[in-house]
Amino acid sequence: MKIRAITAFSTNVEKNTINELEEKLNEIKIDTLTKRISLPETPKNLDLGKLLDLINNNDIIYSLVSLRQNDPRLSQIKDILSSSERVYANILIKNDDIDNAVKLLTKLEPSEASRFALLINDEFLMTPYFPTSTSNVLRNSFALSLLYVKDIIEGKGIISLQKADEIGKKIQKCTNLKYLGIDISLSPWKEESVGEIIERKSNKIFSRGNIWAVGELNKLIFSLAWNAKVTPIGYSETMLPVGEDYVLTKRVEEGSLNLSQLIGMTFACAAGLDMIGIEENEELYKNIIKDSIAIQFTKRRPYGIRIIPSRGEEKIYIKEFGIIPTIKVV
């Protein structure tokens, strides 16, 4: 088990508070892939450029912008994302008035798109997972996300969650930040592949039985959390970010996993359509989002969308992630 992220949640959008959280995160000596700060919903009438004044030159990454779908400042998001590779943004989608969000998405370069997401939900989401992270706390707090695919395969899931929970409690004691819990989502990173687990439970992706396998993984991780006595927050579901999972990437590249099939698996309780190249087409994007709205309404669970616009490439390269394949739309 590895701590994937230690994410601090800020009570406000003020320089002093952000500085304090940066100092506390930098004091934590526990090994983690990233340290993060998530800000509250962006205050109304605040120019987004002002948010850049809040962050300092360090290795921390920031969920800096959280806007609702009709906010006139959507047009500023591209400039914010292009200003720094440590900045992330999300838009809350609650209905099918999505024209402005789609127009923004089609303008993003690959690295910018990898740090931008649409969240379909009733409200913003408190999760350590970026880009769809928004703080909503009365006291400065934090939560953890994990990389524990290998432990699940080896039957060590409960032990991993217990160890992570102990780490969270130690961090609370040394920082005085409130420990909110763990987003127990089963998420991949390259060779630690969720796709591999799905194929072990059913057949090669995509085959009949894969959707069942995704649902079974969700039952499993909730059972592990219950037995480990940890507090789940955020998505806490199986995640299928294609560009972060070598098996999913391979299946897209060989053509055995197409867009319809991937969306079908998200219906069975994966957290959303994530880190996948899709040909740049406004009408296609609108229809994908509308279908996702219907799925979210049925699931009654948060649903994230992170699309990397493809402009004729079969493969898209992003420095932070490597190769992102473009999926067949059929």
Results as ranks from 00 to 15, higher is better:
residue 124 F to D: 05
residue 12 N to P: 00
residue 285 Y to A: 11
residue 139 R to T: 13
residue 219 K to G: 05
residue 226 W to E: 14
residue 201 K to G: 03
residue 106 T to W: 04
residue 330 V to M: 05
residue 148 Y to T: 11
residue 277 G to E: 01
residue 34 T to P: 04
residue 242 V to K: 07
residue 278 I to K: 01
residue 82 S to I: 15
residue 40 P to W: 00
residue 242 V to E: 10
residue 274 D to C: 08
residue 176 N to Y: 07
residue 165 D to P: 11
residue 65 V to M: 06
residue 52 L to R: 07
residue 290 K to A: 05
residue 257 L to C: 02
residue 109 E to S: 14
residue 76 Q to D: 13
residue 330 V to C: 05
residue 132 T to D: 04
residue 281 N to I: 10
residue 83 S to C: 14
residue 60 I to W: 08
residue 270 A to W: 05
residue 88 Y to T: 11
residue 92 L to Q: 04
residue 274 D to L: 13
residue 26 N to H: 12
residue 309 P to M: 14
residue 223 S to H: 09
residue 136 N to E: 09
residue 162 Q to R: 13
residue 177 L to Y: 01
residue 57 N to W: 00
residue 276 I to Y: 04
residue 98 I to S: 06
residue 82 S to W: 11
residue 45 N to T: 12
residue 228 A to P: 09
residue 133 S to D: 15
residue 95 N to I: 14
residue 87 V to Y: 01
residue 131 P to G: 01
residue 318 I to M: 13
residue 8 A to M: 00
residue 289 I to C: 07
residue 194 V to F: 00
residue 287 N to Y: 04
residue 124 F to A: 02
residue 131 P to C: 06
residue 153 I to Y: 02
residue 182 I to A: 03
residue 195 G to Y: 10
residue 63 S to E: 15
residue 92 L to R: 00
residue 203 N to G: 08
residue 173 K to Q: 12
residue 29 K to R: 11
residue 270 A to L: 05
residue 71 D to F: 06
residue 143 A to Q: 02
residue 13 V to G: 05
residue 161 L to Q: 05
residue 205 I to H: 11
residue 261 Q to W: 08
residue 259 L to N: 04
residue 117 A to H: 12
residue 270 A to N: 03
residue 276 I to F: 08
residue 69 Q to L: 12
residue 13 V to Q: 04
residue 133 S to Y: 04
residue 22 E to W: 00
residue 297 F to R: 13
residue 126 M to R: 13
residue 330 V to G: 04
residue 225 A to M: 08
residue 199 E to W: 05
residue 200 R to G: 12
residue 92 L to G: 07
residue 120 I to H: 05
residue 29 K to H: 09
residue 190 K to S: 10
residue 118 L to P: 07
residue 248 L to W: 06
residue 235 Y to I: 14
residue 157 G to C: 11
residue 141 S to R: 03
residue 245 D to F: 15
residue 198 I to P: 00
residue 205 I to C: 03
residue 108 L to H: 11
residue 177 L to P: 01
residue 296 Q to W: 11
residue 116 F to S: 01
residue 22 E to F: 01
residue 33 L to E: 09
residue 188 P to V: 08
residue 212 W to Q: 07
residue 330 V to P: 00
residue 230 V to I: 13
residue 111 S to A: 14
residue 248 L to Y: 06
residue 216 E to N: 14
residue 43 P to K: 13
